[in-house]
Design a protein around this nucleic acid. Structure first.
Lengths: 204, 204, 204, 204
DNA sequence: GTCTAACCGAGACGGTACGTCCAGTCTTGTT
DNA sequence: AACAAGACTGGACGTACCGTCTCGGTTAGAC
């Protein structure tokens, strides 16, 4: 008797093709840079990636999820970026970060895929949560950490809520970017930053 | 030459059916409250409105434009609202406005159509401009006017940029709503408002 | 007075495009002559016809139904053919018909579309009934009519069941064609005919 | 059809798993009894048999070939049946055979798999040849042998072509079964048989 | 008694086609 | 001329299978 059915299953899990995965993600970023989100199709991603549609549906639940992974993979360079500059002067450091952010948001190569992802996030709460955990939260923590150091250094009111503080600085800028309610300039960023810090600084 | 029979006074231009127009706009709001924007179809709007598809295409260039008109018409009550309360105490007045805003944004009857419109705006610069002129700017001006009175009354720094000021107060809240990056509570609104006003108040 | 708008609908029925209809039917016959039935796709028919797939699905319930209509339309010339030749000699007349039939069945231009239709009929009882009414029965009646004249003329046993008689003559040939159980020649047809008539003739 | 590499003498050839083979064939018959041929998939056969798809593709070139093997294996009882009854009276013996045939063809357990196989045969000349050799020819020979004995006994015209004779008797019935051009009854079989034998009997 | 090659189950892969939904255009007949 | 209705071409959806292709894991003979 072969006595072999002790192992209940072959249990080796799915074997995802890394080349296909990469091709899909790359194609998605490319296309997200060429088309608005609503005209970005899974069919086009599959065709561009040289992949069967089913390979996308097998691994991602929706177009939005593909775009999330695509943008995350694409901006992976940010992963090491989890440390904000710290020259000792908070406003200087934040100004540098904000200027870089504004420059990115004004660069179509960044703006277009990011805007696609944002459309998906505004529409889909599930995806927003996923995005929050995987990209937004680490960035938020890095910003908060910088503010925390400033707080310890006496640059900020010791009672300030730093989560709110981060949003005071970045929220108006992201909102202006999303809704295009005005030009997104360094000067605007500086004004936002100055006002926010004025409100956050140690009070006599 | 057809002699330009769109002659001024007596001409009637296109004879748009007011009942059809109203039915379309109502159906669009209803459906925007039931479905995410991406699954909202012109076909469904036409069917719900009891209208031929062509009647929609005749008067609106895109689904986004219908939704814009629909949401605008639906929230027309706000039109009289162009005056913010003025009790003499800016923070009290703004707190009331922010609480009302937060409550609306947390109400699915308001959130869902508005979110559909926002998706359309994030994706479509043309529509964003249209939206900016027709809804956002008047609201912005009303808010700015209240801040201006406060500035004149010495509650705010006379040098403060009031456009930035409005965005400091409302931007973080709208951003949190859109991206669902955190709970949208009265307390959060109060914290944003307090911080912003602290940064905007007369110094020295 | 509007009188009569009590009519619940405009009730004018569907307005099928005759050019699309014709193009679909033609493309189907063409493709049925190029591909085996199982590889004949609605997609290919639509593409060849320059038509949206939906236009096919709107008017036909299945690929089989398209093929039936296509073959019927294509062989419409047979419609006037409902009269078999009558020289007074039954065997001569039937031999001519059988030879023509055998020649057709051996002609790929006829064989291939007809075989596709036959595959559909063998598989689908519903379609078989449709086919029976629209093509087989008229042909059967024409053959039976010729046999009936022969019976009246004393060439056949007055008690012979003519429905069976028709099938005795054509059944073996059609069966051999379908199953390719042997070569389909004039000689074979003659042998079948001779045997059948020997069994059907007036017995002495 | 086994690929049967006729490798040199001592070779042992492929080591086909008999349990898998049997499971595939059984699953194919089962499914052929539940689904029309066009909706019978290799994937479903593999799943039902608890077998990898490759195991099917390794040993059979097509779905049609699996079905052929499946039906042949399933109806293997017929293999010993290669002797028709011989009571000395041809018509009695054939009537028994025809009634049994008609009963089988009217039994869904037999009709459905057989019809699937027939669909495959009508479409695929290669398979028809295979079927002809492995199932039809032995049956045909058995029928012909019985007719030959009748011919020797003087029941049939000594000049009758017995291949044609077999087809005269069985062709109309098979044709009616395939095309469902009429009810398949004992009475119909009797009428066909009587007419055919009338045409085949010793003349003069 | 290992070695090793073929077979096995499983199932991912690039594809084709399915049958459906909807976009945006066009046509018909009614108001 | 705008309207309700709805057919039209066409693009994309998400699913089912195709036939091919690895994966590990058995399972024989061959060594």
């Amino acid at each position: 008797m072969p006595a072999q059915n002790s192992s209940p299953s072959h249990s080796q899990g799915p074997r995802r093709s890394p080349t296909s995965h990469q091709a899909i993600v790359s194609a998605a970023v490319e296309l997200a840079g060429e088309l608005p989100y609503s005209r970005l199709s899974i069919e086009a991603i599959a065709a561009r990636a040289g992949v069967g549609k089913q390979t996308i549906y097998r691994w991602w639940p929706s177009k939005a999820a593909v775009v999330l992974d695509a943008v995350l993979t694409w901006s992976q360079g940010d992963d090491g970026d989890l440390q904000l500059p710290d020259t000792g002067d908070l406003e200087t450091d934040l100004r540098a970060v904000l200027h870089a952010t504004v420059d990115e948001l004004n660069d179509p190569h960044y703006d277009r895929p990011m805007r696609s992802l944002t459309v998906a996030i505004v529409e889909d709460a599930q995806l927003a949560a996923e995005y929050g955990e995987r990209l937004e939260r680490p960035l938020h923590q890095a910003k908060k950490a910088r503010l925390h150091r400033a707080q310890l250094a006496g640059e900020l009111d010791p009672e300030a809520d730093l989560d709110v503080a981060v949003e005071m600085i970045f929220g108006p800028i992201m909102n202006r970017w999303m809704t295009r309610s005005g030009p997104l300039t360094h000067a605007y960023a500086d004004a936002v930053l100055a006002t926010a810090l004025a409100g956050l600084r140690r009070r006599g």
